[in-house]
Design a protein around this nucleic acid. Structure first.
Lengths: 114, 114
DNA sequence: CGTTTGGTCAAGCATCTACTTGAGCATATG
DNA sequence: CATATGCTCAAGTAGATGCTTGACCAAACG
């Protein structure tokens, strides 16, 4: 719960990149090594490792060394927090629009009966 | 639907900043002028305008000039798209974890009866 | 043992980001 | 009309980001 702001910063930042979203998408299918994640991407392995580090820093993925390969898997909490932040705002503005709709309906009814 | 990728890039990028999330939060309560958005933030008005432009470029807010003030309001679609992308991935990994759970349960049952 | 494979580390570089200041301009307001 | 207000624009800056290359290391494999 502490540092929720900085984590939201980092999480949204992490997701703001097509290559990293590609990796996340791959990892939703199950764990994968760094080279597997690199396979569809047109960049050096070193660059992919850096992307993985970004995803790990914000808690979206966890990694673990198995022999000489680094296995990556998704860790839902951070992404769910980001999703939750948007959902909370959406509830806010939807409630407001509902109230606005009610007011307009009342006004229309008052207009009809006047 | 076209350029969904570039818009996701921009939307997540827009949300990856505390000041801009602050503005979004304020706008969920209803429309506001640029100076109103600037009020809680410790930065120049010019900087706030630049943040508004970022939010507008990704479609999260719409603005309109009324006299000499620029009114801003939230425009749900872009944020809902971002929320939806995360939700889709979550459904993916949750389904996978459910299947994994089923397999483990079956294995445990088989173990018991063996 | 030698070689491949999978990854790690560090340095460098172009670009982007989040500001700033200062000048200017068009609508209010007294 | 004069002044204040609410932006708008342009230029500049420090630091972050997304890569690259090249050297290196340690776990497989034949």
């Amino acid at each position: 719960m502490l540092d929720q702001t900085i984590d939201l910063d980092r999480t949204f930042q992490a997701l703001a990149d097509k290559s990293r979203r590609n990796m996340v998408e791959r990892l939703t299918l199950g764990p994968a090594s760094v080279t597997e994640l690199a396979e569809p991407l047109a960049m050096s392995l070193a660059a992919v490792v850096q992307h993985v580090q970004v995803l790990e820093a914000c808690g979206v993925v966890k990694t673990e060394k198995v022999g000489r390969t680094r296995m990556c898997r998704i860790e839902g909490a951070a992404m769910t927090a980001a999703e939750g932040w948007i959902a909370d705002r959406r509830r806010g503005w939807e409630a407001r629009l509902d109230r606005l709709g009610d007011i307009l309906n009342e006004a229309a009814t008052a207009e009809e009966t006047s």
